[in-house]
């Protein structure tokens, strides 16, 4: 038995690698590029935030810390009205799109694969695939036609348009959540005498909860941030905060805009951070 061992020539000790490379994966310059990206992405926003606290009107030179511009912004009726419109529209769009997206996600993950499934995915994701400006003018054309035919006006058009483009954003995390939830849990509930409605309310819905919350938050942020579609279809008195800001920038740069912008950024960042926490919970 020992024969094959001795038959092999005693191999010399393999020479140790002499190269003192700590991390073979590292590439020269990549770290610097990554930091450059972060600086590029954040520097402008940080400058904007900093100048929103500047007491000087010039937006160029830093003279001292002040909250005056926030006070001015909050007193401004135009800004307050726009903020209220933004919140109204975003809330409506969030509720409608989250409900529709949840139902659609259940249909695409909790029933057997069906003919036309690809088409359904295509339709749901359609608002993501077409340039926003095209959707904007197309929606404008439709709404103009409907307004002419029915004579109906109002903020409902804007709300519906937001609901439509929020659906794919709400749909993504809900579907992802449903796909990681194995059907076994629902089958286990049915096995333990739960009728279909109870399976849904006691097992599917509670487990889906974080996905729905994530979807709703994304929808809210996306609606709150929209410019192009709103710009095209919003009627008089339907100015949202981003549209107000765009108008103000066109009129000239003031620290007041910086203050409002900072508030809007803060709202989005807070929501997205919350979302990250929710998703981390989900992974556990």
């Amino acid at each position: 038995m020992a024969e094959p061992m001795t038959a092999m020539p005693a191999s010399p000790q393999p020479r140790q690698r002499r190269r003192l490379v700590r991390d073979l994966k590292a590439m020269p310059g990549f770290t610097a590029t990554a930091w450059l990206c972060i600086v590029t992405l954040y520097l402008p926003i940080l400058v904007l935030i900093a100048f929103s606290f500047n007491e000087n009107r010039s937006v160029v030179l830093w003279t001292g810390f002040s909250l005056d511009w926030y006070a001015k912004a909050l007193e401004n009726d135009g800004i307050r009205n726009a903020a209220w419109v933004s919140v109204k529209v975003a809330l409506f769009a969030t509720v409608i799109s989250t409900i529709a997206a949840t139902m659609a996600a259940l249909a695409t993950t909790r029933t057997k694969p069906f003919i036309g499934q690809g088409l359904v995915y295509g339709i749901i994701n359609q608002p993501l695939m077409i340039p926003e400006i095209v959707t904007a003018i197309a929606t404008l054309s439709l709404f103009a036609l409907v307004k002419k035919l029915t004579g109906l006006n109002g903020i409902g058009y804007l709300m519906l348009a937001h609901a439509a483009f929020c659906i794919p954003f709400a749909y993504m995390p809900i579907r992802a959540r449903l796909e990681t939830m194995t059907l076994t849990l629902e089958q286990a509930a049915a096995d333990l005498y739960a009728p279909p409605l109870k399976v849904f309310t006691l097992v599917t819905l509670p487990l889906l909860g974080p996905g729905i919350v994530a979807g709703a938050m994304l929808a809210f942020v996306v609606s709150l941030d929209d410019v192009i579609i709103t710009l095209m279809i919003a009627g008089p008195g339907e100015t949202t905060l981003p549209i107000y800001i765009l108008g103000a920038i066109r009129r000239g740069i003031t620290p007041e805009i910086n203050a409002v912008s900072t508030i809007l950024v803060a709202v989005s960042v807070l929501l997205v951070m919350l979302l990250f926490i929710v998703q981390r919970r989900m992974q556990r």
Partner: peptide, 20 residues
């Protein structure tokens, strides 16, 4: 008969315990 009307219970391969 649907599963919730059968007096039969299952121990699942990966247990399928309700995490919530």
């Amino acid at each position: 008969k649907p599963p919730h009307r059968r007096p039969i219970n299952t121990v699942f391969q990966n247990y399928a315990l309700f995490p919530h």
